[in-house]
């Protein structure tokens, strides 16, 4: 349990904070792909794709294996799991805030003349 973004989480966030790399990560969710295929799908030149993939690999987000003439990239699960743990702590802050608002409104409601309970089914 980490209190704040660990260096590795920062590297992950940093790597994701670029539209092409985010697109690559989204694409790889469908499964492993070769560099050329990735470049074609994202519509960027292959050298650019390679550069983005290297940054993603440095952050641990993707890994590569060689297959014949090409390198096949796939997503790695662990950085996302780590990021998720960290994001959970953010969620808790906002859940608590929403709860405080909810509690406050419950009290206001009790004070008001309209005390009808309306448990809407929404």
């Amino acid at each position: 349990m980490t209190d704040h973004p660990s260096p590795s989480n920062l590297a992950v966030l940093s790597a994701l904070a670029e539209p092409n790399r985010l697109a690559i990560v989204s694409l790889l969710r469908e499964g492993p792909r070769a560099v050329g295929d990735i470049a074609a799908r994202i519509e960027i030149a292959q050298p650019h794709a390679s550069r983005h993939l290297r940054i993603l690999a440095d952050a641990g987000l993707v890994s590569a294996r060689r297959e014949a003439q090409s390198r096949i990239y796939r997503l790695e699960r662990s950085p996302f799991a780590s990021l998720e743990n960290w994001l959970d702590t953010f969620s808790a802050v906002w859940e608590e805030r929403a709860d405080r608002l909810g509690d406050y409104l419950e009290h206001l409601d009790e004070d008001s003349s309209d005390t009808r309970r309306q448990e809407g089914t929404s």
Binding site: W94, A98, L101, G102, L105, L108, G120
Partner: peptide
Amino acid sequence: LTVQRSVRG
């Protein structure tokens, strides 16, 4: 992050 909650009022 999206947080949604039902509140009275």
